[in-house]
Structures are given as structure tokens and as C-alpha cells.
């Protein structure tokens, strides 16, 4: 299991262009092979927001910890760090050849575009799971509409994008609202 966690995060690291959020779609897909549910993944996102540090490191540690305990977390965090330790010395060795390579830039631009689609799809999956209780897009029979979740989802998006309110504050606020609604 530890070896599997290690190789999974090594793969995620080397394919993870464009930062933490772009990597989350890879992590979502790969961790579901270990048995991670959409709710667990959504909780991972919440912890990413609440705990300081790079999102990719936080996420790797979480998945490793959940599926492999202490050693699992160590393996996943180390594995996801390896690309940096490989590319930095390599780049400094061959700086001029890689720098300003137009092909590399072209590839990166389209990977960024791809990541928009990938992140958006993951966001839709979480929305379907939290606001409609659906396991996937075709799961209409079990659909169960949750008004509060959808309202919080939309409100948090608008407050974050328009009013620039920090994700930490919004996460804690949503938790407090959810807590209170249990008693109403």
C-alpha cells in the first residue's frame, strides 16, 4: 500500500503542471482508486483552506495519512516533492537550452487550458454530491436536493470572487451556519 501511495504521488507530481488546484483534479481521480469518496475529497479541500502550506503538499499528506497512516503520509509527501528536487538542479545545469523554449511555453499554455476544464469538472462533481446527493452525472434516481448546501455554495463563490473575502473566513462561517442549522 505504501509503495502504491508513493508511486501514485510520484505520477501526480510529474504530471502536476500549473500548481495546487490543477493538481487537485489528478489527486481526485487517483485517490478515488484508493476508495476516497467525494465527501472525503471535499473535506480535504476544506482542510487545504484551513491549514497553511502549499495545496499539493497538504493534499498529498492528507491522502497518505488516510490510506497509509504515518508512513503513508511520509511516502506521499516525499513523492510529490521529488519533481522539484530533480528539475531544479537539471535546469540550473542546462539553463540556456530550456529557458525561453517556445515549444515548452506552447505546451504549458494548453496544459493550463486543460486544467480549467479539469478543475471545473471536479467542482461540478462536488456540487452534484453536496447539493444534489448524486454520485455522478447520471445518478438522477437518487437525487435529493439540499437547498442550504446550494445556497452556501453560491454565496461563498460570490463573496470570494466579488468581495475578496478569504476562504478561511468563508469556510469557518459555513461551518458555523451548518452547525446552527442542525438545531433549527
Amino acid at each position: 500500500m505504501i509503495l502504491q501511495i508513493f508511486s501514485t504521488f510520484l505520477k501526480i507530481g510529474f504530471l502536476g503542471f500549473g500548481g495546487g488546484y490543477a493538481m487537485l483534479s489528478l489527486i481526485f481521480e487517483e485517490a478515488s482508486k484508493f476508495g476516497m469518496t467525494v465527501s472525503q475529497f471535499a473535506d480535504l479541500n476544506a482542510l487545504d483552506v484551513l491549514i497553511p502550506g502549499p495545496i499539493a503538499i497538504n493534499s498529498a499528506t492528507y491522502v497518505g495519512q488516510v490510506y497509509g497512516g504515518f508512513l503513508g503520509a511520509l511516502a506521499s509527501t516525499f513523492a510529490v516533492s521529488i519533481p522539484s528536487l530533480v528539475f531544479v538542479p537539471a535546469f540550473m545545469q542546462y539553463e540556456e537550452k530550456i529557458n525561453n523554449n517556445a515549444y515548452l511555453k506552447a505546451a504549458l499554455t494548453s496544459v493550463k487550458a486543460a486544467s480549467v476544464g479539469l478543475i471545473f469538472a471536479v467542482a461540478i462533481s462536488i456540487m452534484l454530491s453536496t447539493a444534489f446527493d448524486m454520485a455522478n452525472l447520471f445518478d438522477w434516481q437518487n437525487a435529493h436536493f439540499d437547498f442550504l448546501s446550494l445556497a452556501i455554495l453560491i454565496a461563498a463563490f460570490i463573496l470570494h470572487i466579488r468581495c475578496n473575502i478569504s476562504p478561511i473566513g468563508l469556510t469557518l462561517l459555513a461551518g458555523a451556519i451548518g452547525w446552527l442549522c442542525y438545531f433549527i
Binding site: S39, S115, F120, A123, L153, A156, P167, A174, I177, G178
Partner: peptide
């Protein structure tokens, strides 16, 4: 109540992913 709080928090995680996709 803890589950109720978690459900609400899970909804915000979708918002932040939408926001990340939108920004990129």
C-alpha cells in the same frame, strides 16, 4: 451537528474550485 457543519463546509469547497477555474 458536526455532520451538518461538515456538509456546509463541503459546499464551500466546490465554490473555491469554481473560483479557481474561473480565475485561471
Amino acid at each position: 451537528p458536526m455532520l451538518s457543519a461538515l456538509v456546509a463546509i463541503r459546499a464551500t469547497s466546490a465554490s473555491f474550485l469554481f473560483a479557481a477555474a474561473y480565475t485561471i
